[in-house]
Amino acid sequence: MKRLFLDIFTWWNSATIGTRVHTYFSGEFVGEDEFGNRYYRSKGGKVDPTLGFQRRWVIFKGEAEATKIPSGWHGWMHHKDVPAPSEVSYKPREWEKPFQPNLTGTAGAYRPKGSIVHQDPHRPQATGDYDAWSPGQ
């Protein structure tokens, strides 16, 4: 029951009912990545006449987070690479980093020293190379 409720009323948990219906009738499964995200395209590779290219989409496993798409699939999603990683033996290059979640807005977000939300909110001492402006000068 909870899954049905989330599918109807939320877009950030996997996919909505509308996306699932569209995928069932108009989608063709292309592949799945190491995170369990499933990738689709228009049935038969049909080109959308209004866009001028093939529609491609992803149904995320769990929370919809765009940074969860690996680099190989990202290239396919954005029409940069012709074949999908599932259609060729895709191997990430040595400089491609593994997924790291975007922690902005969470407790794990980066907070520089001196920030009011840092564990030690005291600002470091000024080095003397800065003269504060005052209206009387």
Rank of each mutant, 00 (worst) to 15 (best):
residue 95 W to D: 13
residue 91 K to C: 07
residue 99 F to R: 07
residue 55 R to S: 12
residue 72 G to Q: 13
residue 63 E to T: 14
residue 62 G to H: 12
residue 83 P to F: 00
residue 99 F to Y: 15
residue 79 H to V: 01
residue 87 E to I: 01
residue 103 L to H: 00
residue 84 A to P: 01
residue 64 A to H: 12
residue 79 H to Q: 04
residue 58 V to R: 10
residue 76 W to L: 11
residue 71 S to L: 15
residue 67 T to S: 14
residue 89 S to K: 14
residue 101 P to I: 04
residue 54 Q to T: 15
residue 100 Q to A: 14
residue 62 G to S: 09
residue 72 G to D: 14
residue 70 P to R: 12
residue 56 R to S: 04
residue 87 E to A: 11
residue 81 D to R: 09
residue 99 F to T: 05
residue 58 V to C: 15
residue 82 V to Q: 06
residue 86 S to A: 15
residue 87 E to Q: 10
residue 90 Y to K: 14
residue 73 W to R: 09
residue 97 K to C: 00
residue 58 V to F: 08
residue 57 W to M: 08
residue 80 K to M: 13
residue 70 P to F: 09
residue 103 L to Q: 00
residue 70 P to Y: 13
residue 61 K to T: 06
residue 104 T to V: 02
residue 61 K to R: 11
residue 91 K to W: 01
residue 64 A to C: 11
residue 59 I to V: 14
residue 101 P to V: 05
residue 59 I to H: 15
residue 72 G to R: 11
residue 95 W to E: 13
residue 102 N to T: 01
residue 79 H to T: 00
residue 85 P to T: 09
residue 97 K to V: 01
residue 68 K to P: 04
residue 82 V to L: 07
residue 99 F to I: 07
residue 57 W to N: 08
residue 82 V to S: 07
residue 68 K to I: 03
residue 103 L to M: 05
residue 52 G to S: 01
residue 56 R to L: 02
residue 51 L to M: 04
residue 102 N to I: 04
residue 72 G to T: 11
residue 101 P to S: 11
residue 88 V to L: 08
residue 65 E to I: 12
residue 98 P to V: 05
residue 101 P to T: 04
residue 95 W to H: 12
residue 62 G to M: 04
residue 82 V to C: 02
residue 72 G to K: 10
residue 65 E to W: 14
residue 51 L to P: 00
residue 73 W to K: 08
residue 98 P to I: 08
residue 98 P to F: 06
residue 68 K to E: 09
residue 68 K to H: 12
residue 70 P to H: 12
residue 53 F to C: 00
residue 79 H to E: 02
residue 79 H to W: 03
residue 56 R to W: 03
residue 54 Q to W: 02
residue 94 E to K: 13
residue 79 H to N: 06
residue 56 R to I: 04
residue 60 F to I: 05
residue 99 F to N: 04
residue 97 K to F: 00
residue 82 V to H: 04
residue 71 S to C: 07
residue 52 G to W: 03
residue 75 G to K: 15
residue 70 P to C: 10
residue 74 H to K: 13
residue 95 W to Y: 11
residue 93 R to Q: 14
residue 101 P to R: 12
residue 82 V to D: 13
residue 97 K to G: 00
residue 63 E to V: 08
residue 94 E to P: 03
residue 59 I to L: 12
residue 71 S to A: 13
residue 60 F to K: 07
residue 85 P to W: 05
residue 96 E to Q: 15
residue 95 W to P: 03
residue 56 R to V: 01
residue 84 A to H: 02
residue 86 S to M: 06
residue 61 K to L: 08
